[in-house]
Design a protein around this nucleic acid. Structure first.
Length: 821
RNA sequence: GCCCGGAUGGCGGAAUCGGCAGACGCGGAGGCCUCAAAAGCCUUUACUCGAAAGGGUGUGUGGGUUCAAGUCCCACUCCGGGCACCA
């Protein structure tokens, strides 16, 4: 494309100036109203891809727009620089992850600068920076001190591909690792956990007040999975002093308990199992505990597969409602780590119990009346209770209340709330992460590394392989140490922390990376937080966004962030993903379309306008054969802006209201439209409005000649409104037109004149029998009877009505009249 | 299976409240400029009947409410995403 100016030179010039002058540096004592705009800090995977471009284009638009609105905008940048890909790449290259990572960081930073996105680089935060490590460890120790970090043996998810354990959140629903795709195995290992479950209730309740996409909030609610019910005892039939404890959300169905089930991991399984059934039970347990998640969950719900998934223990417990003994089974459909690990089974009202009962020939009792026409199977809906003694005739809600009360008095019952959410497993058997700052002493046990000794840094000369133990464990000099408490021989923890711990507080560090000796000054953090606008991909809906919420609440509670809002992100926007031929564009799929190519060919401004214009920001973008043409179209639009702004060949004339007022009205209407659209994140229509303004101004200048003041108002307004979207070309044109003024981005956002935005004439639609038959220009203030008279007097309308009298006339002045005949 | 989204011209999309469907752009067609091309500029472009004036049809499918439905209600189809033995 032949361009009317040297795009590359202009973009380079302004990028250098913004960087050199620190245009978007903002001090903590800035007196203006504060605004914190943040894109999720990126994993440094090298030069930016289109997903980054889209993200930072939106973020930069907000930063520049809010600055023009007169706010002190905090716009920081950083890198989530710890993590597995760097470690794996380093193993492959025989190099150090730091070398690899820092090279990728430099590439990404270069891309971001070439995009023209502006940041306060003084606040750069990097996960693997020793300062950041120090404070990540300080926070870990504070959690440990507060009882929020603990070490426990538990069945955990082991990924053979990554050679490390994973958090539940990192295992996909098909039982594979979200990163490597390997089938995750279950292992019993001693690991570090964070007590996120202490915050389950708050994490759930506080979602309500957040201005987040409903979809993301729903995902978090489902993940937390609150359920209310009753925990109570099922006493052994042969020994009333012993009992298994069960949890249920349907105490009302208690008369329908026809058996009970314990999980294969249940502590009392051995006690329950009689000699005659010992081998069957052992076989089932063996199968269940060695099975991968996939095998355990992929078996069909009914049919022959089920016969392999449960076994009778030989014992009986008593149904507290009927007093009758019911058999106790062990089955893998009951999970050891939810509720009490044991259930009362009600096949009449629970689908899983029904399938199991069918497969094992267990009785099914209906305790809730079925609606007419209901066939076989479990019925989970509402209805009158039947076969239920004192509960008969009650609906489900009322019966729950009565049954719960009964269990409280007769079966040591207590009301109980359970969550699906598990504690966050944070230790990783990998090298490239933040070391966990504790030592193990034979005398003193687990001892925290003293704060003065932080940071605990991993040595550089470590052999990294995928043996399954932490690479640090093989480094004797690091591993072997002395106990900070007794001075005796001790061993360092050699696991590192999940990288999601780093991304759980970086946004706090941004608010004050300046005060020495502390992660951040709580006073500064409290002033900037919460983030006013957080922008990122929806793939973090549960992982990062849940962990960060937990961190902030915990940091406030343990005194590290007093006064800081308990929710980190007031508004969240999740952008759509970019697809190429139907599949997500990603580095791992190797189907990236490099932004660099477009920076070189059409410039950053054109690529930015494309990402804004292509569709709603929340929607996915399909990168197709047409995309190249659309990007060229965006470059063409900017070229037209350039030509119009620099054209001095239009015929000059003096002000003429009939020629100039219509254009001025368009200009001021456009100010309102663009402002409204940016505020509601409708960037595509904001760009369309600017294209319309450009077209209208060019047509006006060409056809009627120009009055200088009117022309300048139109062009300058266009540049101001376009400045957050296409910062380079607008900065250049503004500087050419106003060499003595501050730059376009330092100007105030324009405000529309209400007199000019008020409508002068309205097109009133006249329908006959609901079909548009005429359009009449009317004053916006016409009342209903005038509108009706005007409509009925219109010759075209008359011809459609003919001789007949209208049966009804609906008038909505000044917009519409509908005549029925 | 459950829970969320979505379906509008050849394509991406627009349409704050139930009130002109298709803004804006891409692509296409025609024209101007040019020796010619590129670039630029202008006109046109939902489908359909018609020479035209003008008419009819039209927002995934089928019903409904309404003077009026892309928009609201009911049922369904397809596509995308999330969750999935959580008792």
């Amino acid at each position: 494309m032949a361009r009317p100016f040297d795009v590359q030179a202009v973009e380079r010039k302004w990028q250098e100036r913004w960087l050199r002058e620190g245009t978007y540096d903002v001090d903590n004592d800035d007196p203006r109203e504060r605004y914190y705009a943040l894109c999720m800090y990126p994993y440094p995977s090298g030069a930016a891809h289109q997903g980054h471009v889209r993200n930072y284009t939106f973020g930069d638009l907000i930063v520049r727009y809010q600055t023009m609105r007169g706010k002190a905008v905090l716009s920081p940048f950083g890198f989530d620089s710890f993590g597995l890909p760097a470690e794996n790449a380093a193993i492959k290259a025989g190099s150090h992850p730091r070398i690899f990572t820092e090279a990728r960081m430099a590439e990404l930073r270069r891309s971001v600068e070439r995009l023209g996105a502006v940041y306060d680089w003084r606040r750069l935060v990097v996960s693997h920076d020793p300062e950041y490590i120090k404070y990540s460890q300080l926070i870990f120790l504070a959690f440990l001190n507060a009882g929020l970090a603990y070490r426990a043996e538990a069945p955990v998810n082991w990924c053979p591909g990554c050679a490390t354990v994973l958090a539940n959140e990192q295992v996909l629903s098909d039982g594979t690792c979200e990163r490597s795709g390997d089938v995750v195995q279950r292992r019993n290992l001693e690991q570090w956990f964070f007590k996120i479950t202490d915050y389950a209730e708050q994490l759930l309740n506080d979602l309500d007040a957040l201005a987040w996409p409903e979809r993301v909030k729903t995902m978090q609610r489902n993940w937390i999975g609150r359920s209310e019910g009753v925990e109570f005892d099922l006493v052994f039939a042969h020994d009333a002093s012993r009992a298994i404890r069960v949890f249920t959300t349907r105490p009302d169905t208690g008369y329908g308990i026809t058996y009970a089930v314990v999980a294969p991991e249940h502590a009392m399984l051995d006690e329950l199992t009689t000699d005659a059934h010992r081998s069957d039970v052992a076989e089932l347990v063996e199968r269940a505990t060695t099975a991968t998640e996939i095998e355990r969950t992929s078996t069909p719900d009914c049919g022959p597969g089920l016969s392999k998934r449960g076994a009778f223990t030989g014992s009986y417990v008593v149904n507290p409602f009927t007093g009758q003994p019911v058999p106790v089974y062990v089955a893998d459909y009951v999970l050891g780590n939810y509720g009490t690990g044991a259930i009362m089974a009600v096949p009449g009202e629970d689908e899983r119990d029904y399938a199991f009962a069918r497969a094992y020939g267990l009785p099914v009792v209906a305790t809730v009346e079925r609606p007419p026409g209901f066939g076989d199977g479990a019925y989970a809906g509402d209805g009158r209770h039947i076969n239920s003694g004192f509960l008969d005739g009650l609906n489900v809600a009322d019966a729950k209340v009565e049954a719960s009360a009964f269990l409280v008095t007769h079966a040591r019952g207590v009301a109980k709330v359970n969550y699906r959410l598990r504690d966050w497993l944070v230790s990783r058997q990998r090298f490239w992460g933040c070391p966990i700052p504790v030592v193990y002493c034979d005398h003193c046990g687990i001892v925290a590394v003293p704060v003065e000794a932080l940071p605990v840094l991993a040595p550089d000369d470590v052999t990294m392989d995928q043996s399954g133990q932490s690479p640090l464990a093989t480094h004797a000099e690091f591993r072997d140490t002395s106990c900070p408490r007794c001075g005796g021989p001790a061993r360092r923890e050699t696991d590192t922390m999940d990288t999601f711990t780093d991304s759980s507080w970086y946004f706090l560090r941004y608010t004050d990376p300046f005060t020495p000796g502390r992660p951040f000054d709580p006073e500064q953090a409290a002033r900037w937080m919460p983030v006013d606008q957080y922008i990122g991909g929806v793939e973090h809906a549960i992982l990062h966004l849940l962990y960060a919420r937990f961190y902030v609440k915990a940091l406030v509670d343990i005194g590290l962030a007093p006064g800081v809002d308990r929710e980190p992100f007031a508004r969240l926007f999740t952008q759509g993903m970019i697809r190429l031929n139907g599949s997500k564009m990603s580095k791992s799929k190797g189907n990236l379309i490099s932004p660099e190519r477009y920076f070189d060919r059409v410039g950053a401004d054109a690529l930015r306008v494309f990402h804004l214009f292509v569709g709603p920001p929340a929607d996915d973008v399909d990168w197709t054969d047409q995309t190249e043409d659309v990007i060229d179209g965006c470059a063409r639009f900017l070229d037209r802006v350039y030509r119009l702004s620099t054209d001095s060949t239009f015929a000059k004339r003096s002000f003429d209201p009939s020629l100039d007022l219509p254009l001025r009205r368009i200009v001021h209407h456009t100010i309102d439209r663009v402002t409204f659209d940016i505020d509601r994140w409708s960037f595509n229509t904001a760009v369309a409005a600017l294209m319309e303004l450009l077209n209208a101004t060019a047509k006006w200048a060409r056809e009627s000649g120009v009055d200088d003041a009117v022309c300048n108002e139109a062009v300058d307004t266009l540049l101001l409104l376009l400045a957050p979207m296409a910062p380079h070309v607008t900065a250049e044109l503004w500087a050419m037109r106003h060499p003595l003024e501050p730059s376009v981005h330092a100007q105030a956002w324009p405000v529309a004149d209400p007199i000019l935005t008020a409508e002068q004439l309205v097109v009133m639609v006249v329908q006959v029998n609901g079909k548009v038959r005429a359009r009449i220009e009317v004053s916006p203030t016409v009342d209903d009877s005038e509108a009706r008279a005007l409509a009925l007097a219109d010759p075209t309308v008359r011809s459609w009505i003919g001789d007949s009298e209208p049966t009804r006339v609906v008038v909505r002045a000044p917009r519409l009249v509908n005549v029925m005949v």
